[in-house]
């Protein structure tokens, strides 16, 4: 385990997007009250096949966003089509997914990012806590390891200013 510096450094060089984050609660206090301010985010893209089929949840997520923030919800397939090289306002866009698997699918589909923030994954069957409020199953760890092998820097960090941990140095 090593310290990978403050949240800001960890975030600033995440590829082209302002932030790509795994957080199974999607939009909540940490995202709304802290991250959006910290990164001057204007657009939040939520990539989740299930939410993409749920108009009610889309309404809730859109209405829950603070004034001035646009929330887009799309399926993995739609995300791959729209978040490619030529996506607009990338440096002002936060991509939110619920699980490592979705992040992997996006990456394979050509949505490239050099850094990935893991912000929160709740415990559950097969999942074990690995850092603070972040739990993962062995499979999910494998998926993240494969992203590390593909050159993505995976950082575990709830909010900027808290301690950040580099995933690669954590699970050898």
């Amino acid at each position: 385990m090593s310290r990978s510096g403050s949240g800001r450094e960890a975030v600033k060089s995440i590829g082209e997007f302002a932030l790509v984050r795994i957080d199974d609660r999607l939009i909540h206090g940490q995202v709304m009250a802290v991250w959006i301010k910290h990164l001057d985010v204007e657009v939040i893209v939520i990539v989740d096949d299930r939410v993409a089929k749920d108009p009610f949840m889309q309404d809730v997520l859109r209405m829950a966003a603070p004034p001035g923030i646009t929330v887009e919800v799309c399926s993995v397939e739609e995300a791959i089509a729209t978040l490619g090289e030529n996506a607009l306002k990338k440096d002002r866009t936060m991509v939110l997914v619920k699980s490592p698997n979705t992040a992997r699918l996006l990456f394979d589909g050509g949505v490239r990012f050099s850094r990935l923030n893991v912000g929160g994954i709740g415990g559950g069957p097969g999942r074990r806590s690995i850092f603070k409020n972040i739990s993962m199953s062995e499979d999910e760890k494998c998926v993240l390891r494969s992203l590390v092998r593909d050159g993505v820097r995976v950082t575990l960090l709830t909010v900027p200013g808290e301690r950040a941990v580099d995933f690669a140095s954590m699970v050898k």
Binding site: R25, G29, V31, M32, A33, M57, V60, G122
Partner: peptide, 16 residues
Amino acid sequence: SVKTSLMGPMAGIGDT
């Protein structure tokens, strides 16, 4: 799924 999908957005509004 109702619990897990709503708890986040409600927390965001509540904290604000």
